[in-house]
Nucleic acid binder design. Structure first.
Lengths: 156, 156
DNA sequence: CTTGTATGGTTCGATATCGTACTATATTAT
DNA sequence: ATAATATAGTACGATATCGAACCATACAAG
């Protein structure tokens, strides 16, 4: 049962397919955020966790702007997220010695510990999904997702 | 490649793979939301568009709770989204004749028109991506995404 | 050195998100 | 019929998001 308004133009149906993909992605993002935040305490958000996790994995001492780009959010949103982390004592912000305008973000011990316990808190949920969506599925999905992300990034 | 006390344990690395998938999905969701909202006017959000689009495609006369479930958001968030649509004259809310507690949501002509013009506004961006991410990629990605969504839905 | 412009970051205001608590109606058990 | 419980939806408050405007420093041109 196709929509009758337009003839079955391949460009339209391909675009519809893309909408469907993005729609699924939006719902998955919503669900995974809700699941993660249900495992975090103290009102920590996915964004807070993501920043801590990123710095543990790729090293700290990065700038707020680098962080904003890594998560593809406006710098003003990242500024707010970092203020929340600093207020909770999970990161510290130092002036950038090479750029008087800039700051550098460093993890505190509390930040590293919180990230670890958050990982422990969410791991059972993730591991429970692996029998249904394991290595093969993930390895099939990742290149497609990366390609889509790069395209969307370029389309900005 | 040793499997020792250190965390190169298959369960852990599979979990890491899952984190990577969800991370990509989060960024894609962020990017596609930003792109869509940059094409909408009057402060319309992705959520507003999503609700209109859903009703055009699957029929209106649904309840707020059905909408909240379709988008996997809390009912209180959907309540707010619907209030925004009603305030803009894009939907109307009627009492549900079969349930004195409930309401039914209907598209207005303005709502249908707005959805059409939003589709037109975003279509060029989507079509521009098709040479890079077309039917084959979308058809490969969709079943994986649907499976992941169902899993996350069940894990709630 | 001054001036113009670009860049890193914050402030502010409008709106979105969502948990808690609440109201009203429906359903179920007795 | 009544009481207990469940469900649809809203009100409210705390926090998140993000664009516009802003400040400070950096950099480039003359």
């Amino acid at each position: 049962m196709k929509r009758s308004a337009s003839p079955d133009n391949p460009e339209i149906s391909d675009a519809q397919l893309m909408f469907d993909v993005l729609n699924e992605i939006g719902i998955i993002s919503q669900l995974s955020r809700a699941l993660l935040e249900s495992r975090l305490q103290d009102g920590l958000t996915q964004q807070h966790f993501g920043v801590l996790n990123h710095m543990v994995r790729l090293g700290d001492g990065c700038t707020p702007l680098e962080m904003a780009r890594a998560f593809q959010v406006p710098k003003t949103s990242m500024s707010h997220t970092l203020a929340g982390l600093e207020k909770r004592g999970l990161v510290t912000m130092q002036p950038n010695p090479h750029d008087g305008r800039g700051k550098l973000i460093y993890l505190t011990d509390a930040g590293r510990e919180l990230r670890s316990s958050a990982i422990s808190a969410i791991a059972p949920d993730v591991i429970a999904m692996i029998p249904q969506f394991g290595r093969d599925d993930a390895n099939a999905a990742l290149p497609l997702l990366r390609k889509l992300r790069v395209l969307l990034d370029e389309a900005r």
